[in-house]
Write a protein that binds this DNA or RNA. Structure first.
Lengths: 158, 158
DNA sequence: CAACTTGTCTAGAGAATTAGTAGACTGATC
DNA sequence: GATCAGTCTACTAATTCTCTAGACAAGTTG
């Protein structure tokens, strides 16, 4: 199960993917637009910065921007950074593998073998979805836009 | 991420799937064979019993057995029973859906739309794997004995 | 019935993780 | 140098997970 940290992080990244390249956005703006506690988002963006996904700029006119194009960032890598392994069980993880203590014979562990397939299925989806695809999906799943147009739209129109 | 509860539960169910139909097994035996704390397993099997996956018999010669054939129990349903939704995020769950508070416009939430696809991928794997398939994969995985490797292989290698 | 075996239930302890807050500090801009 | 905005350390509250203790209920056997 995705934590709120990862969820907020993904929302923030989707937001950043929507601004003009070269522009920056304030943490406070991202937080307000997505109903994320500002201080919590500070910490999340800090991690994403350390992992090289975003750049930050201090001082007046500062803020955050993507470090790479949104088509070069996969959702899977973001989730791994914020929440750890994609696999349902750590001994089934490929990039962040760790043996599980209570399992005598890993090669024949039925649970692990099933979860390995589950991991592959998840990774297939998340590693092949880029940030801009994710963002685009939110905009093109259109039904009537009438109700909540307005302030929320100048972000979506990027 | 799967909890130990679900992991233990799956191991126990795989164990039960391996005994003769009509026979019962002691909780203590399952616990010892799989290095599961006995009291914890008590609770887990209790939940599985309430959910109708296993039957229990009291008194001498008692124990647990599957309530249905191991080909009629899916791994997905077991995980749902023990750990809740398969979806990485609850608003992307189909059977155990719950709205998430911090999301104004669910139909256009990019995170949710991606996680919906992830959920489908996970469910595809777990709902289409039955208990006996899971158990079989553990027995034929890599140092297969006399048995034909044909059908079992495409499952084990993913 | 009595003794024994085995599952069932309630309650909760301890640890880990998650979610969020506070406040001082650094560096940039005007 | 005033102000703005990200950075860092530290902390807390709440929740969840993992596991245990112990009383109790229900069958089985003699």
């Amino acid at each position: 199960m995705l934590t709120k940290k990862a969820k907020y992080g993904l929302k923030a990244m989707a937001y950043l993917a929507g601004i003009e390249p070269g522009q920056t956005v304030l943490v406070a703006d991202i937080a307000a637009s997505n109903q994320i506690p500002k201080k919590f988002l500070d910490a999340i963006l800090g991690e994403l910065r350390n992992a090289g996904f975003v750049h930050s700029k201090k001082g007046k006119g500062g803020g955050y921007m993507l470090a790479r194009g949104p088509s070069e960032i996969s959702v899977g890598d973001l989730v791994r950074t914020l929440d750890g392994p994609l696999a349902p069980i750590q001994c089934a993880s490929k990039r962040l593998y760790r043996r599980c203590e209570d399992c005598a014979d890993e090669a024949h562990c039925a649970v692990r073998l099933v979860m390995l397939k589950a991991r592959d299925a998840i990774a297939e989806v998340l590693d092949n979805t880029t940030l801009d695809q994710m963002r685009a999906s939110g905009e093109t799943s259109n039904d009537a836009v009438g109700e909540s147009a307005g302030a929320a739209m100048d972000m979506a129109r990027g």
